[in-house]
């Protein structure tokens, strides 16, 4: 066996701190609740509906992020233009804004008399204390995952490959969906899963826009404040299990995904 040098050993010890710091609380949480309380919580319609609202809204937010994020990602990957840095910053800004602040910012615009909320409320679309409010809160904080990951995917494709497709008779749109999109799909899927997971976990922005209908993180918070730790834990375990299951599933799928590494 290769003999390890002291630097590697030292760095490995330092590095394992973070790994354990993340790993221990998660494992402890999952094992801390007894099966009985988890099962009774699973039969609680409030718990089930809050998890459903979370998963469903997050999915919706992800679809919207994909619909608008992928074209943006492609433009950012392929074109240089004035103001590009500004657009990139705007996409990344939600990462640095406190989420309660995001909630307030969105609330001001999307209430029934806000500049976007007012016209939309005339169409029957309300955001405060409604699913659309949850969706936009999620979309705001997590769409950058789709944009940035898709963009990386597009950037890894040699533009000359697209040029060859053009010379063979494919127009720009045809080239996009027969060459660029399939080759970037892996990155787009990764970005989507990150976006979805980030949406499910969103709490701060959601409670300000829409305390009700309850999303799972809000329910956990409510149970914790009103009934204490013992009551909140089983719901937390259920939520984290769902998230981890999907995370692992996607990882496994990704491993089997054909990669087309460059020559």
């Amino acid at each position: 066996m290769r003999k390890l040098d002291y630097t590697t050993i030292f760095f490995a010890i330092m590095g394992s701190f973070l790994v354990l710091f993340i790993f221990i609380p998660i494992i402890n949480l999952i094992t801390s609740s007894d099966a009985g309380s988890i099962i009774s919580n699973l039969q609680d319609s409030q718990v089930i509906s809050s998890i459903f609202v979370s998963v469903y809204s997050a999915l919706f937010a992800t679809v919207i992020a994909l619909l608008f994020g992928v074209p943006l990602a492609y433009i950012l990957a392929r074109h240089d233009f004035k103001g590009k840095g500004f657009i990139e910053s705007i996409i990344d800004v939600p990462i640095v804004i406190p989420h309660t602040v995001v909630g307030i910012a969105l609330l001001l615009v999307f209430t029934s008399n806000g500049i976007i909320g007012a016209p939309l409320s005339k169409l029957g679309l309300t955001f405060t204390d409604a699913i659309p409010g949850i969706v936009i809160a999620m979309l705001f904080v997590s769409s950058s995952f789709v944009v940035n990951s898709s963009r990386e995917g597009f950037e890894s494709i040699d533009p000359r490959m697209e040029k060859v497709a053009r010379t063979l008779g494919a127009g720009t749109l045809r080239t996009f969906y027969s060459i660029s999109l399939p080759l970037a799909l892996r990155s787009i899927v990764v970005g989507s899963v990150m976006c979805w997971a980030r949406s499910v976990s969103e709490f701060g922005a959601v409670i300000i826009l829409a305390y009700y209908p309850l999303v799972a993180p809000t329910l956990i918070y409510q149970k914790f404040v009103n009934y204490g730790l013992d009551n909140a834990t089983p719901v937390a375990v259920i939520l984290i299990s769902i998230c981890l299951a999907i995370f692992i599933l996607v990882r496994v799928l990704m491993r089997g995904w054909r990669t087309y590494d460059k020559n």
Binding site: V164, R166, L168, G169, I179, N263
Partner: peptide, 19 residues
């Protein structure tokens, strides 16, 4: 545009569609 010119193009690194 290139798709209307009917020219063949071959690059150094082949640029085959990997998928």
């Amino acid at each position: 545009p290139p798709e209307k010119r009917g020219v063949g193009f071959v690059y150094q690194n082949y640029m085959l569609f990997p998928h």
